[in-house]
Write a protein that binds this DNA or RNA. Sequence first.
DNA 1: ATTAGATTTAGAATTATTCTAAATCTTGTT
DNA 2: AACAAGATTTAGAATAATTCTAAATCTAAT
Lengths: 139, 139
Amino acid sequence: MAAHRKAHDAAARKTNLTRQREVVLEVVTDAEHHPTAAEVFEQAKKRLPTISYATVYNSLRYLKDAGLILEITFGNGASRYDSETSRHDHAVCTGCGKLVDFDLTETVELMRAAARRTHFKPASIHLTLVGLCPDCRSD
Amino acid sequence: MAAHRKAHDAAARKTNLTRQREVVLEVVTDAEHHPTAAEVFEQAKKRLPTISYATVYNSLRYLKDAGLILEITFGNGASRYDSETSRHDHAVCTGCGKLVDFDLTETVELMRAAARRTHFKPASIHLTLVGLCPDCRSD
DNA sequence: ATTAGATTTAGAATTATTCTAAATCTTGTT
DNA sequence: AACAAGATTTAGAATAATTCTAAATCTAAT
């Protein structure tokens, strides 16, 4: 069935982004902060009232595996999702919980150094600065 | 109400290190991998059969706040605890889930750079290398 | 139209963690 | 030693985050 395989793959690729996955992706992309699954569910329901919680989780996992979004976890509470998939770093505010994106170019070198040190085959490196954001710092 | 148990030594009493907190700290320190709260509970029960789950969590929080252990969270599942409190980095294996400690001296500079970039008042910086450990890398 | 396979749905189940209220322990005072 | 105030522990309930289940629905290929 080699002849059919090609057509199937093309079609599958096209249709695998179902309506609900599309909506979930839109919600994550449109969000100005990095939403939790619960927040995505809430917003997704506005665009697709029948969507279920499980589908939001399934879609988030699908989109993550497909490389279209990133999952971010730090200390307390729920995972957050990020539509910015190019490599970047995060800063978390211990005062208000705000999560900010930034990019340190040094991390490319750093990943090599870390891989050398640990003998791991590197896939990615995550750097999180913890501290007080400009609004919360008292000094 | 006879005293069935010896009193703690003076140092422990002074620092609020109760018997259960002491046991929890020992378990985390003795563990060769970074245990979850559930694993700590299991081991702690062997040394102090009446200890409760809530006390394990309370103790872990107490020890964390006291700076005696660190809490580590990455992507999936439960928090893990680490008795190595000096600043260091982690590498997680996507194959077997192994978590390895290492230290990159470059991170001191990095925290400054990150703080400059984000205008955060830095408290700490966390770096996690994700990849395949020596045992899991196929090449 | 039929079938196979994937996806969605609602809700149950599971896992991780926190909360509650009563019991117990510690410490300081008498 | 007795006593009270305050901290800690305990068991279990409660909550939060996430995954699982099984039936219904959709999609693509016959």
